[in-house]
Design a protein around this nucleic acid. Structure first.
Lengths: 146, 146
DNA sequence: AAAAAAAGGTTGACAAAATCCACTAACCCC
DNA sequence: GGGGTTAGTGGATTTTGTCAACCTTTTTTT
């Protein structure tokens, strides 16, 4: 039992560290016009290719009305296209337009840039170890997912 | 150079995973009355013992006006006490009241509980490995801090 | 020691982000 | 074909977070 509370504490410690270093805790996560959620949504549509809103709601765990409005905004901006689904007339298939894809890759490049700058003086080996550790965390915590 | 962009991608992958599993991405991070930022602030004052606001601004990288208001709220709620500093008459020393300490430990317990539930069926060894990996990430990324 | 610059904090005024709830339409299935 | 569920929207509001101006004190510059 002791090992569990130790692990919980380590996770909390990590969270305190990581939220700050990755700027998840407010204050300029990216200097773009997109919030973290918006970026994630664009990315999600980009990788899914085509999907419906409830897919995103499920994977991202965000409020559906919130998402609805964000998608609306994206449509108005010409980043996303909605097409009534044939199989399910309640739903709409959403996809990125060309402009949307462009904007998404631009955003990804921007995040890459930012993260890269934080890796400034890591050695080859440290990068390697970092990658391994991150993947270990994913594989361990990820297996809990239903 | 290649190793860096690989690392960046791994970090991005990790972020996508971690923000969702830890519910950093909106929607009920905790079912308490406190936001992530507020929780972190309480925790910070708790561990610092006594500090001034700009200490918190520095460690948490949040806007000073934002913090100012949160502290004001905490004062009204009787969680925090402000005392004009002697060494610097611009600043105020802030500390948790007894109620504040109580509330903070209650909050910590709540987060612990939540994280613990996510560790449900991890083995002893997996916990160990998880802790090691988290600490490795901290030690590697942490050395960049100035 | 006076002037200038910087640091600690507060406030006003907003903008953006997020939540809650009610509601329509379609689907599922027994 | 009626009862529960799912997809999505819209209203209303709260919470969060930002920006800039401001006052006071401290520090630095000259």
């Amino acid at each position: 039992m002791e090992i569990y509370s130790k692990t919980v504490n380590e996770i909390r410690k990590f969270n305190r560290f990581y939220t700050v270093t990755m700027c998840f805790l407010s204050s300029g996560y990216l200097d773009s016009d997109y919030s973290i959620a918006e970026t994630r949504i664009l990315f999600e549509i980009n990788t899914h290719g085509t999907c419906i809103q409830s897919d995103i709601v499920k994977t991202l765990h965000i409020d559906k009305s919130y998402l609805s409005r964000i998608i609306q905004r994206f449509c108005k901006k010409g980043l996303v296209e909605k097409v009534k689904s044939d199989d399910d007339k309640r739903a709409s298939k959403i996809t990125l337009t060309e402009a949307g894809k462009l904007e998404t890759t631009r955003l990804i490049a921007l995040t890459n840039e930012k993260i890269l700058s934080q890796l400034a003086d890591l050695s080859h080996d440290e990068c390697d170890e970092l990658c391994k550790s991150l993947n270990t965390v994913i594989s361990i915590l990820g297996k809990e997912e239903i």
